[in-house]
């Protein structure tokens, strides 16, 4: 009973993005940018792809050790903040309510609409299939980044993790690909937020209040059971 209340839709009158979500979102944004830019500095010391060096103007850290220092500070903020965000999302039912279910047919239709600039987002309190996929996807990628990062940091203590990625260089490559995926996500995410500025305002101020009555029954968890 108690869990049903907890996992149900937010109580009427609550903000679309509760304060905890907003704080963890922006903390994560700062930590992620620190991780990406310091990661580029670390990458430059021993590149994976000969054609790719990150320009000094966009990396964090003057020398390699500074890039490493930032990276090993950012990791704590990213992980601790991420744990709070994940715990809240799972326990409050927010993830289930906003990110699930993802229907492939819906996703295809909306990707097509997005590519022809016909995707609408009238109700900010509900995510379309493209958003659900991107948000769920980037959460999973960040979790993978933490795992490949742990494999690179402690390849002996967590040697089983290295095996998961093949070998040490496999973990490096996975860590790089994860970074690239996050950067791509960021480009799309920021572009879309700027195209629909109300979403950006909502992540700062909390957004509109939830209407008293649920919009449709399918959003209640009972309908899925």
């Amino acid at each position: 009973m108690g869990s049903e209340i907890k996992a149900g839709p937010p109580r009427p009158g609550a903000r679309m993005h509760p304060a905890l979500v907003r704080v963890t979102h922006w903390t994560n944004a700062v930590a992620m940018i620190v991780m990406i830019m310091s990661g580029w500095k670390i990458y430059n010391d021993e590149v994976i792809f000969g054609f790719l060096h990150f320009p000094e103007a966009i990396v964090l850290g003057k020398w390699a050790q500074h890039g490493l220092q930032w990276h090993f500070l950012g990791m704590w903020i990213l992980v601790l903040n991420g744990l709070v965000y994940l715990a809240y999302g799972l326990l409050s039912g927010r993830f289930r309510r906003l990110l699930l279910p993802i229907r492939p047919r819906e996703l295809l239709r909306e990707v097509k609409a997005a590519l022809t600039f016909r995707l609408h987002h009238p109700d900010l309190t509900r995510y379309n299939a493209v958003q659900k996929t991107l948000y769920l996807g980037v959460i999973l990628v960040i979790i993978m980044q933490v795992l490949s990062g742990l494999a690179l940091w402690k390849p002996v203590q967590f040697s089983w993790l290295v095996v998961l990625f093949g070998d040490f260089q496999g973990a490096r490559l996975a860590h790089f690909i994860g970074m690239a995926a996050i950067v791509l996500f960021l480009l799309v995410h920021v572009t879309l937020a700027l195209l629909v500025p109300r979403t950006l305002a909502a992540m700062i101020g909390g957004g509109q209040r939830i209407a008293a009555a649920p919009r449709d029954v399918s959003s209640s968890p009972a309908a899925h059971s």
Partner: peptide
Amino acid sequence: MLFRKSSSRF
């Protein structure tokens, strides 16, 4: 070559 070594900044 794709996997070229960089000049070390270490």
